[in-house]
Amino acid sequence: MDTTVSDTKSSIDRRALAAVFVRLGAFAALGIILLYFAIYARGFTSSFNLQNVVEQSVILTILAYGMTVVFIGTGTDVQKGGIDLAVAANAGLSGAVFVTLLNLGWPEPLAVLAAIFTGMAMGFLNGLAVVVFRMIPLLATLAVMNIASGLELTITENNVIGVSSEFLSTLQFGRFLGISALAWVLIVFTIFVAFLMHYSPFGVRLYAVGGFPEAARAAGLNVGRNIYFSYIFSGFCAGFTSILIVSRLSASTLGTGLLLLPVLAAALLGTVFSRRFVPTIGGTLIASLFVGFLANGFQLLGVSSYWVSGVQGALILLVVALTSFAKKSEGA
């Protein structure tokens, strides 16, 4: 709803200035919250705790990357734009496949590939629905979400299935240069996705397709193929995450699908931490770490867990409201 019409140049300047100020405001709010925790929450800044938060955030972050790539490739319009409601349920299904195959005696690399392939196949189904059948993404991915979580329940028969292997315990307990394996996974994955989205021609094309599909089509880009890619990539993130989930819990557990809302929150909040309020990998990383630090900080402060989701919700709204004024004043 772009309502402001800029009249004069000076008002534009003032607005631009305000925008800069408010954008810094989002980061300032983040900084103040972290500072508060650092001062008042005992042990918040200990390296053990920081690493713990990062490890806890890995799963959320990588799923949120999947959602972010879908946002980049298909836009963030509430109804018509792209969204992947299936990403969390996908991770659940991939995890179930992974654990079941391991227990059947499949070698680890094959099982890992199969899990990732499962995620990508469900992503392909999303892409098929959106590109070929031209279904609304919200609905298409909702249907796929039902299919994925139904299949997960069918495979696991609603049980927690335990599994253990050397590879998984390396992932869980391994360290390298003083940093845990999970943190390394996050670092490497972030660099990989950030490079793909922000420093390769491929990412530029994806932004073009998501930003203005008609223009991208007129410029000769294959819109459908790019949308396909974004959903399949999201499926890849889901499959990849499922292995991390299994390694962290030494089991495939139900309820992975419940991550959907936090993932959505992280990916949407991520747009606030970017220069032009568009989905970016860096923004999503900051947002999901922010969500993780909030939960952790409140835990350390001894705040009742009943409060946590409410305060998270309120703070997210606050940060978004702050920046929505900047967005407005830029006329974006």
Partner: peptide
């Protein structure tokens, strides 16, 4: 008033609502 997207606004309310009910 705060010009938040319907998606994010109602998502925030969903989080807050679940806390209110727990409390």
């Amino acid at each position: 008033k705060l010009r938040i997207d319907a998606f994010l606004a109602t998502l925030g309310v969903l989080f807050i609502g679940s806390s209110v009910q727990r409390l």
